[in-house]
Nucleic acid binder design. Structure first.
Lengths: 271, 271
DNA sequence: CGGTGGGTTGAACGGCGTCAAACCTAGTGG
DNA sequence: CCACTAGGTTTGACGCCGTTCAACCCACCG
């Protein structure tokens, strides 16, 4: 219990669409379809959002917050397996995850490339597109999700007027670099067990930061996706999880992970 | 021939200081010591710098360039094996490499951690410090080098006034993220040979971008440092270089690398 | 009830790490 | 000038961890 809100009944537009391999076409909705008005109100600006402490507006005072509200008026729902954007798409906006879970993967997202990260509520996606004007990776929803669309030109303009926003943006970009470097170190020299434990500890930390239980959560991604994130095969991921369970450190049943011995887990991760 | 200018006689302050294990104390000079006035003039602002096309001022017009000159007035020399900053140091400035070569490595730089990157002239160092207010890694000179000191608060202020500078900064940060993702993909699934060839191709590209020969260059780093960058041991690096030589793709003698068959080399790198 | 995608587990192979030894080069001191 | 030293590099032998290939199980759904 006490799992992320978007568990499975979060959005059920009309009919199930599991297993639909046509996971790749873009989404048309840029505003909510009338049908889902009851799911969440149209105008949930940053100032009203429960995430504004950890998201882009972090550190911006109430006065300026109202100006940021202008930025994030458009929102969008992305259904499971759909791409928010794909590698090569022209870059116009960045996206803040409001609810749900994403993966970002290199290449066209056909399912072979490295997965550079998993993003949850309050995290920004798409900043990699700035450098070339085209997205360098694809962002795909792991479950039915919702994002705020933040037009990048407008955000830059506002950042020029609001120093706190500018600083927050820089902090977010810098944080992403630091995270990437940590992952690099892990892939460079960590064993399978170290990679998996570091992954679980990181997930747990980010979830608890958002008010969810740190010791019990559902993995939103498959073993194969974990593997492609950590530079391992799905078999190794599975085996390692089983071993951790045998050691009494965690409990795994399907996607549900329970952390039995948090200390033992943290002790395994290098730094 | 036609190698980077800082080859070996670049700066010889007074006496050799090789093998000095005390590679770790900070540098005191924030302006040039009088002795080295002849090495390069004190006032070489961005507008005069040969690197301004690829460095931070890229895309800034002549008028605004004069304002950026204010930012980069302070420069600093960093001798071989000395740290420009170390992990944990408070973050105040970023640095643009003017000449020489750096490595950035996690941890305190004691020589065990992952090397996140090698930086050459025109590249920015230190952006990772924004997120926490402290540098997350250490930057160490691989040869006698020189950097421009860019106080970050001042740069942010100027970026608010000069959109082109703002955009350039964002582009640089974004580019670093994209590069990290490429490296991630390499460490995640590449063989030793793919990692080494990708590394060589990247080095060659960046050097030729700066006007140096693409097919012949000296490695500024040891085999061990290459290994710590690519997630390999020095032995594997050495063996792989030897194998590439046996295949007739490159020629290696010590640190000197000649690329014999550029196409064969590029064909080996995955993407 | 069968189909399908995801997960687990076993067995054999192989690339790369580990350990060890020798060499090469440059700097140091006699 | 030469011997000595130390760091860097090369090469070989061996073993381990993770990949590969394959079989099987499980949960969910049509």
């Amino acid at each position: 219990m006490s799992n992320p809100p978007t568990d499975r009944r979060m959005t059920q537009p009309d009919r199930r669409r599991r297993g639909r391999r046509a996971s790749d076409q873009r989404i048309a909705t840029s505003k909510f379809p009338p049908a889902s008005r009851n799911f969440s109100q149209l105008k949930a600006a940053c100032s009203q959002c429960t995430l504004h402490e950890i998201c882009l507006p972090a550190g911006v005072d109430m006065l300026d917050l109202a100006r940021i509200d202008q930025l994030t008026q458009k929102r969008m729902r992305v259904l499971r397996h759909q791409a928010l954007y794909k590698a090569g798409d022209p870059f116009h906006s960045v996206y803040a995850v409001r609810a749900g879970f994403f993966k970002t993967e290199g290449g066209t997202g056909d399912g072979r490339d490295q997965i550079t990260g998993f993003q949850m509520a309050g995290e920004l996606i798409g900043l990699d597109g700035i450098s070339s004007g085209r997205h360098a990776c694809s962002a795909v929803a792991l479950e039915d999700s919702e994002v705020c669309i933040i037009p990048f030109n407008e955000m830059e303009a506002l950042a020029r007027a609001v120093p706190a926003l500018q600083r927050s943006l820089h902090r977010l970009m810098s944080r992403e670099m630091v995270q990437d470097h940590k992952l690099l170190a892990l892939l460079g020299s960590g064993t399978a067990e170290e990679r998996i434990t570091a992954f679980l500890v990181d997930l747990s930390r980010r979830l608890s930061q958002r008010g969810y239980a740190a010791s019990e959560f559902v993995l939103r991604m498959t073993r194969e996706e974990i593997g492609r994130h950590l530079g391992l095969t799905l078999e190794t991921v599975s085996r390692t999880l089983s071993r951790l369970q045998r050691q009494g450190t965690i409990r795994v049943q399907q996607r549900l992970v329970r952390i039995i011995d948090p200390k033992a887990l943290s002790d395994k991760v290098p730094a």
